[in-house]
């Protein structure tokens, strides 16, 4: 079974941050996000969280959100997976 979650997260990042398909396709677990992508500022984070809730059908408690969550693509996908499986 293919794992579609990383691709869903890629497409959310692309839509919110206006990144190209090539740029998000090249992301792997070690790709740094917060601090490395100028497009990802704190204002974009709010939109990202709401889109993740809508598209992954999860609920995110704002208390769960800290800077580490957006450190790398891998940490963001791991967070999403924990919520989806939760």
């Amino acid at each position: 079974m293919t794992d579609s979650l990383p691709d869903k997260v890629r497409s959310i990042l692309s839509d919110i941050l206006g990144l190209s398909a090539e740029q998000v396709a090249a992301m792997d677990n070690d790709t740094e996000l917060f601090g490395a992508l100028p497009e990802l500022d704190s204002m974009a984070v709010a939109g990202l969280l709401t889109e993740m809730e809508d598209r992954l059908d999860i609920m995110i408690d704002d208390d769960d959100v800290d800077g580490d969550l957006f450190a790398t693509f891998g940490s963001l996908v791991a967070f999403a997976r924990a919520k989806v499986d939760g």
Binding site: S42, M43, A46, L49, T50, D62
Partner: peptide, 24 residues
């Protein structure tokens, strides 16, 4: 409700950056 939630989140993040910690 989705619009309101995103706007509240944006406000909370801005407050946090300004050194004011609050919740919705």
């Amino acid at each position: 409700s989705s619009l309101l939630k995103t706007m509240l989140r944006t406000r909370l993040i801005a407050d946090k950056e300004a050194g004011k910690s609050s919740t919705a």
